[in-house]
């Protein structure tokens, strides 16, 4: 009996994922201002080449759900109309909109979420005239604090772009940059 159980276990671990799994799972690419949260097994949420933009990644371990928002600008007062249409464009409207998406997946308490930040790079600039990346990071942190939350890890700043993705299955988040390889945060 025990032997059978071991064999069965081994098979279930080594077997290829069932068909429904491959049919349902997909990579969600999000663009500037995009927000997506998912609890579909196998799903990956990805955003390409974050420059001065900031990616906010949230994981809800109890729900087995992950989410990402692609923040472009620090504050929605730049254009409140745009904020209505695409809340993910701005840090102050993007975070509440992402929480809403998680609530639809069953989130009760926002403090269950584990946050990570990535991006916010800037070009070398003596006077920091164009350093919107830094302002994006500060604004994201501030908005998280407002909700009594904070990121547990950050991979921000510097002068290189980052491609970021997060997997539903493992809840792990990876970064990639041309010439720098791939790493986990």
């Amino acid at each position: 009996m025990l032997f059978l159980a071991v064999v069965f276990h081994k098979q279930s671990v080594n077997a290829a994922p069932p068909r429904w799994y491959e049919a349902m799972s997909q990579t969600h690419m999000i663009g500037l201002g995009g927000i997506h949260a998912s609890n579909t097994p196998g799903d990956v949420i990805k955003t390409m080449a974050l420059g001065s933009c900031v990616g906010i990644i949230a994981v809800a371990p109890r729900l087995r759900a992950v989410g990402m928002a692609h923040i472009v600008l620090p504050h929605s007062r730049t254009n409140p109309e745009k904020a209505n249409l695409t809340p993910g464009y701005f840090a102050d409207t993007g975070i509440p909109a992402m929480l809403e998406q998680f609530q639809r997946l069953g989130l009760k308490n926002p403090r269950e979420l584990v946050f990570k930040l990535a991006g916010g790079a800037s070009v070398m600039d003596t006077n920091n005239t164009f350093d919107i990346g830094k302002r994006n990071i500060l604004s994201c942190r501030k908005e998280l604090w407002k909700h009594r939350m904070a990121a547990i890890a950050e991979d921000v700043g510097g002068n290189f772009s980052r491609t970021v993705w997060v997997e539903v299955d493992s809840g792990r988040m990876y970064l990639q940059s041309p010439g720098k390889g791939r790493w986990e945060l």
Binding site: G51, S52, C53, N159, F160, S161, P178
Partner: peptide, 16 residues
């Protein structure tokens, strides 16, 4: 480059 529309390897690696 800041908006993520660069040519990848040299993205952001320039001086203003």
């Amino acid at each position: 480059m800041m908006a993520g529309f660069g040519t990848q390897r040299d993205n952001m690696q320039y001086q203003m």
